[in-house]
Amino acid sequence: MVIPKRVDTSLTGRIDDLEKAFAAGAYLSAISLALTIPDICGDRLYPERKNETRRRYVDWFNAYVAFNYLDKKSLVTNGAITTSKYYFSGEDCYQLRCVYLHQGINATDPKPGKTSYNLIQFRVFSSGPGSCDHIGETTLVAAGKTTRQVDLDLMKFIRCLKSGVEQFLREYPQMNADNGSGNYLYGPVLDFENGRELP
């Protein structure tokens, strides 16, 4: 008989799995998992806001990740940001999460107060010190339509998300809990392949 190994579904376990997916070149899986982490964190931080999925997601992302995507036009006074504009905010990430996880696409529907991008795309580069995010616009003169696109370095996105989760857990260490079923045999994933054989 084999006793299965339970897969760690805590926040740190999920970040570890995310990094493994990226390292293995499983980019679609890495993006899917990355886009769910603000959902989990927002749900844990704001449990009283059960019917406000979007708001919880956006608020958590803006508090812990968005500052990594600060627009160069933001105003900094005495080393502090006095007015900020993120080129990739919680609203942008939430809109991507919705279309990517539910429709399998990265073309968002720009609306006032939500994302201004028609397309949000990740790029993967060889490992190195820099990253390359890019914002572009294409105007189809005949149609009179402008398409906005942001391209994000996937490795940077994962690093920023990991850093945000680490900060979140320093402030709220109890939020790291593996919130799977309390019964060992009904956890989200039981790994029989790497389990332990009973004598």
Rank of each mutant, 00 (worst) to 15 (best):
V2M: 10
V2C: 07
I3N: 04
I3Q: 13
K5C: 05
R6T: 07
T9V: 02
L11M: 03
L11P: 00
T12H: 04
I15N: 01
I15D: 02
D16F: 05
E19N: 14
A23Y: 08
A24S: 15
G25W: 10
G25N: 13
A26H: 11
A26Q: 07
A30V: 08
A30S: 15
I31S: 06
S32F: 01
L33H: 00
A34F: 10
L35F: 09
T36G: 02
I37S: 02
I37W: 11
D39C: 06
D39E: 14
I40C: 04
C41Q: 03
L45F: 08
R49Q: 13
K50R: 06
N51P: 05
E52F: 09
R54Y: 03
R55A: 10
D59G: 00
W60K: 08
A63D: 14
A63N: 12
A63P: 01
A66N: 06
A66G: 08
F67T: 11
F67G: 03
N68F: 08
Y69I: 00
Y69S: 02
D71P: 01
D71A: 11
K72R: 07
S74M: 10
S74W: 12
G79Y: 13
K85Y: 06
S89H: 00
S89M: 11
S89Q: 02
G90C: 10
E91P: 03
Y94K: 03
Q95C: 15
C98E: 14
V99I: 14
Y100I: 07
Y100D: 01
L101E: 05
H102A: 03
H102K: 11
H102D: 05
H102G: 10
Q103L: 07
I105D: 12
N106K: 04
T108H: 05
P110M: 04
G113D: 12
G113C: 06
G113Y: 08
K114M: 08
T115K: 07
T115Y: 03
T115L: 07
Y117E: 01
Y117Q: 05
L119R: 05
Q121I: 04
F122V: 12
R123T: 12
V124S: 03
F125H: 07
S127Y: 04
P129N: 13
P129R: 13
G130V: 09
S131C: 00
C132I: 05
D133T: 09
H134G: 09
I135G: 07
I135S: 13
I135P: 03
T138M: 09
T139E: 15
V141F: 15
V141W: 13
G144M: 13
G144I: 15
T146A: 11
T146Y: 09
L154G: 10
K156V: 12
I158T: 05
R159K: 15
R159S: 09
G164K: 11
F168M: 10
R170F: 01
R170L: 15
E171H: 10
P173E: 12
P173Y: 13
N176P: 01
N176W: 11
N176Q: 11
A177L: 09
A177F: 01
D178G: 01
G180F: 00
G182Q: 11
G182I: 02
Y186R: 12
L190K: 03
D191W: 04
F192I: 09
F192W: 14
N194G: 08
G195C: 08
R196V: 14
P199R: 13
P199S: 14
